[in-house]
Every structure is written in C-alpha cells, then in structure tokens.
Design a protein around this nucleic acid. Sequence first.
DNA 1: TGATTTTGTCTCGCTATGCGATACGATGTT
DNA 2: AACATCGTATCGCATAGCGAGACAAAATCA
Lengths: 271, 271
Amino acid sequence: MSKEHGDLKSGHDDKADVIQSVAMALQILETLADKDADIGVTALATALGTTKSRIHRHLRTLVSLGYISQSEETERYRIGARLIALGKAASGSADLSSVALPHMRALRDATGHAVSLGRVEQDGIRILNTLAGNMQIEVGVRPGSLLGFTNSAQGKVALAAMSDKDRAALIPSKLPAATQFTITNRDEFWAHINTVRDQRWATAPNEAMLGLNALSCPIFDADRTAVATIAIVSLTQYIETPPDPMQIRAVSEAAERISTQLGCPNYVWES
Amino acid sequence: MSKEHGDLKSGHDDKADVIQSVAMALQILETLADKDADIGVTALATALGTTKSRIHRHLRTLVSLGYISQSEETERYRIGARLIALGKAASGSADLSSVALPHMRALRDATGHAVSLGRVEQDGIRILNTLAGNMQIEVGVRPGSLLGFTNSAQGKVALAAMSDKDRAALIPSKLPAATQFTITNRDEFWAHINTVRDQRWATAPNEAMLGLNALSCPIFDADRTAVATIAIVSLTQYIETPPDPMQIRAVSEAAERISTQLGCPNYVWES
DNA sequence: TGATTTTGTCTCGCTATGCGATACGATGTT
DNA sequence: AACATCGTATCGCATAGCGAGACAAAATCA
C-alpha cells in the first residue's frame, strides 16, 4: 500500500486536502469547548475569520446532531451533551493495555529484554501485562502482582513523576527492605527520588530481587498525571548502572508514544 | 429574531439540512470512539453504509487534523489524542454552577420558593448557589455551608441516588439530630432512604430547622453519578407532606434539564 | 417613546468541493 | 502462484456548501 506520491513541485503543506466543512465544524467545537460562556454566531464568525452564513449553517447542523445546544433565552450556543458523551467514550476507548501492547512489543524487540506494564494504584504498581524477553532464562514479574513504591524501578519512577503532595500521600511510613540493597533510610530515599526526577528514569538493581534489575519510565494520560509505568526487566548484568543510553532512550520513547496515544499533550514531567 | 418558517407542506424531519460531510465525520468519530480495537477503511465503510472513497477521504482529513491516528504497522485507524483533549475540554466547560443558573431561575419563577444548588462532597452537600424566593420572609441556606447527609432533603436524595457501596462509604456512624424530627434510628433511616429512592425525591420537614422544609432531586453528570442536588426551600406550610405534585414535577424537571446539559444520557436512577 | 445598531436567521445563484466509480500496488491467504 | 482483500490514488461530474446580501427581532441608545 502506501504509495509514495512525492509531490515535489507544489510544495504543499499537509494542511491541504482536508475536507473544509469538517475542519470548520471541528474548529467550532474546539472554540466552543474552551470558552466557558456561551457564544453567538457573529462572535464566532469573527473569531474564526469567516462569514456568518457559514458559521450559522454549521451551528445549525451541529445543534441538529446534538453536539452543541442553543440557549433558549439568549440565542447563543454552547457545548452540547453529545460532545461530552463523545469525549467520555473517546477517553474510555483509549484503554491502557490495548494501546500499550504494540509499543511493548516494539520495546521488547528493540532491547531483547522482558517488558512489563504497570498501573499506578493506591498502594503500589499493579502489573497489567508482561512480555517475556528473548533470552533462555525467564525473568519478569507476573501480571496481577503488586510492586512496592520504594523497592522497584516502576514504583520509584511513578513517585518521582507525581506532584509532591500526591507523593506524600502515597509513600509508606516504613520503607520495607526486600533485599539488603533496598534503600531504607528515609532521607536517602528522598534524595534518590529527586535524582530519578531529574534523569527521568529509574532503575532498581537488586532492590526487589537479587540479580534482577529494571529500567522504567512513567506514562502520562490526558490530564498529564502519571497513571502507569513501562519497564524493561532483566538481569543486573544486562541493565547496568548507569544503563546503556540506548536502553534508556528505547524505554523513554515507548513511554512517550503510549502517553501521546492516551491524549497526553506533550511528554514532559511536572515540575 | 426566530423566524417562524412554518413549513407545513413538506413534512420534513429535522435530519435534513445538515452538512453531510460534518455528519459523516462525526459519525466516524462516534464509531471509532466506542470501538476498542482499531478499525479499517473497508469495515468502516460497510458499517456506515457508504463508499470506501468517502470514508478514506474523511479519515485522511481527521488524521491530518489530529482527531484520529493511524497505526503504523497495521494501517488501521483509532481515536487520536486531540479528540480525547476535546472531550476533556468539553466536560470542563460544562460548569455546574453556570449551567444550572438559568434552570434555577426558572424553577424559582415556577414555584415562587427559594432554590438552592448543592454539590455532593465527602461529608455532606456543599451549597454552591441559592436564589431567594418570591416571599417577604427570607428562608434558605447560605452558599458555602454544608448540609448533612442524614438531616437534609438534599443529603438524603443524594444518598438515595448513589450505589449501595458509595452510600455505605458516606453514611456517618452516628446520625446527628438537629431537631426532634430528625431520624436517628438507623434501620428507620435506611428504610426512609429506600422510600426516597423509589419516589425519586426527598423532603425533610423540620429535620434541619423547625418550620422549614425542602424538596430536592439529584443531578447526574455524564457518568450518571449523582454529583449535585437541586432543591426548593420554604416553610413547612408551603411544602406539605406529601408535596404538591406540581412542585415535585418542577424540581424534577429542573434536575433533569441540568443533568442533560452536563452530558447525562438519560435521567434515570441507578438500580 | 422612537431611532439605530446588532443580533440570529433566511434566500439565492454560483462554483468550488466533496462525491462515486474505478483502478492500482501491496499484503496476506489458500 | 493464483487469489482475495486491504488501504490508497485518480478523475470527471453534479451536488453540496459557500458568500453576499436581505430581513426581522432584540438590544441599545437617545
């Protein structure tokens, strides 16, 4: 498929060949969506730089379809119930597991290591899905299991990616030690979280289990809150300290792609 | 404005005179939004009963505008980030207070009594806005104040409209008595809540303050959860037991209209 | 109150625009 | 290797959507 269509002569931006009616309708919806107050035909026309006739025709169809509604007293227009429902449906359809799966596969193929996807819950990272690595020995966590916030790469990166008060609400009073490499000193742990936030990834060599390591990045949703994590999991000898920059980039890009598909406007951490 | 345009001869449904391109584009978005899996051009064309060309052209523009995105491996289409963002913006713009205000006014004018709007919070109903009634004596609650779940019409109707486990999480261990008419017996209170759920409205004569009564209905949002309440507040002699059916209908209709504008698909209680 | 502006709505001819039919290359299936 | 099916591109044509303008009802002003 995918014919090249190298149209060199007419250096057209890809803003061409879009159906103008559709573009206009969506522009109207966008404009209406981020105004809090109702807005009239004339104001809309001047705001979008087109004629009143056009706007009015579009408003009529959008009202007729239920996506916007018109106030009865003042005759201005506002967002309608159906657009809200559409938005809800859209968010709901962006299911984390299904969206992430192809990117998990790509990450596994790029690194050769096991990949795990986790959701941020009240008391840890719940593993939703894992992909086995390309090696003989089977490592990795079981789907359904819960990783601690303090002794896993996924947990630490989730903590580091959220706001200070959210973090304070989640961090346990005691730092449980799974191995002798787990950080249990409170101050030391906070400093470590700050480092994680700066470097935008986390590892946890030998922290959960001796000989194992993971490299994790956070996944943000449309509200730009860290709702999930993705990680590669392997032996400590394959994920070194610090990890191969190629590995970091691979995990980070997977996280970014998934975040974008979830509606995250841009993959940057909150400050 | 509002020209009558009584077009009697051509008994046309209002499905005419909509811009077909826009209708098609929105149909595509709707279809894509409630499918969880990606979907291809051909499937979409047969599902919507039109040609592949048309669908493909629309998909191209929607992709170009960012509302949907195309998988790179399989060349199928899915919901895009921008649609999710639009939905979020739409929900956010449906602000409860501003949406409710005109309906509150209509309710006040229809009944002559004070009207109050409350939001369901963790430990009670927070009064967001009130409109004074058309009577000499000033009754009603102050905006900002918090009504109890057990001794106000608004609180009881909110409890009755939510699911059993949500209700169990909210109901206080002790039933505080504001007056001697407040229900303090636990079994009796639960039975009363069931009655409220069946009749779909609640009153609280003399329960919060002697001589005062309120008639309240719940307001649902796009998720069909009870997020707010609306009520008329007056003297017990004007809101009788049981209340005038006209009053019940007026409050209920206001609640329904507000719910609809918030994106609630249909004003029915959860079972 | 009456004059004036501004609003939302409607009409009408024109042509740009989105349409259907068809074809093509690529992929996967038997 | 033949086949079915996929997404994509092309191309006239007629229709659908467009702009300009007119109109009445409100809102605003005098």
